[in-house]
Design a protein around this nucleic acid. Structure first.
Lengths: 138, 138
DNA sequence: TATAATTCCTACTGATTTACTAGGAATTAA
DNA sequence: TTAATTCCTAGTAAATCAGTAGGAATTATA
């Protein structure tokens, strides 16, 4: 049930951007240094977040990334979802359309996985980037 | 955030035992066939559950395993906990006593991991084996 | 215009973990 | 005595994780 570093680093990078929202682009080399995350690895994660529409890039010197929306409107589940699967088991995931097993209707353990999935979603949906900013004013 | 098969198989095996609680020992070869789980792998998982005090073994021919307690008193979190870590990130786990980072007090992302951990615990603590039995009478 | 700082893209890789397999010893009901 | 079981340890192929590496494209500034 552990989160991978993708999700963890992704959230840390996004909170970092949230704390500087409205102050122009922030470069990944800066985030990399301050958050102690490998630059090349961070590039890959942020590329995913950009394709998910959560950040926008400014290319060239003095460029970087900015949040695509107000940090109060971006939930943690939105950040983690593109980076790694959120559902605890395959068969209660809305993304994967694969039919996981034939006992779908009669499966009893499924009950607890759905409950678990919902409570994970609830916790991450109800927390926004601004909730995690050290400067809570933004 | 995916559960490994250890947790998933462990819960399935325990629910299987719960549905036959009070009917004598159930062999792993039977569970293995019915739940379609490799016998040798299942042996290893059940060994962990036995050491955790959740099941008791009956050795020899016509032996097997029985639940150590009433299925209404065994929560799913008790089953999964010995099989795999439940906390989403290292630094909000009560088991590991390792100091994960020096920013423990000022860490802002920690807030959401604690909230996530608590809601995972809550979901799994509040569900028992008997809640997942197809024969809900037991 | 040249340079440095950046994003962007793809391929590779070592280490770790996962999900088993394999083999056998000990126990016990029939 | 046999067959069915638990019990124990070691090994292992495949997948995943957590990056590295190398370079192309873009752009503000000197």
């Amino acid at each position: 049930m552990k989160l991978s570093t993708k999700g963890e680093y992704g959230v840390r990078a996004m909170v970092f951007l949230a704390e500087r929202y409205g102050q122009g682009p922030v470069s990944l080399s800066y985030i990399s240094q301050r958050e102690n995350i490998s630059l090349a690895y961070l590039e890959q994660l942020v590329a995913i977040l950009r394709k998910a529409g959560l950040v926008e890039s400014v290319r060239g010197a003095y460029g970087g990334y900015v949040l695509a929306r107000d940090p109060r409107s971006i939930s943690i589940s939105e950040v983690i979802r593109p980076l790694e699967p959120l559902a605890p088991v395959e068969c209660v995931s809305d993304e994967s359309q694969v039919e996981c097993c034939e006992q779908r209707e009669t499966c009893t353990t499924r009950l607890v996985w759905e409950k678990l999935r919902d409570s994970i979603f609830q916790a991450l949906n109800s927390t926004t980037l601004s909730d995690l900013c050290s400067d809570r004013a933004s």
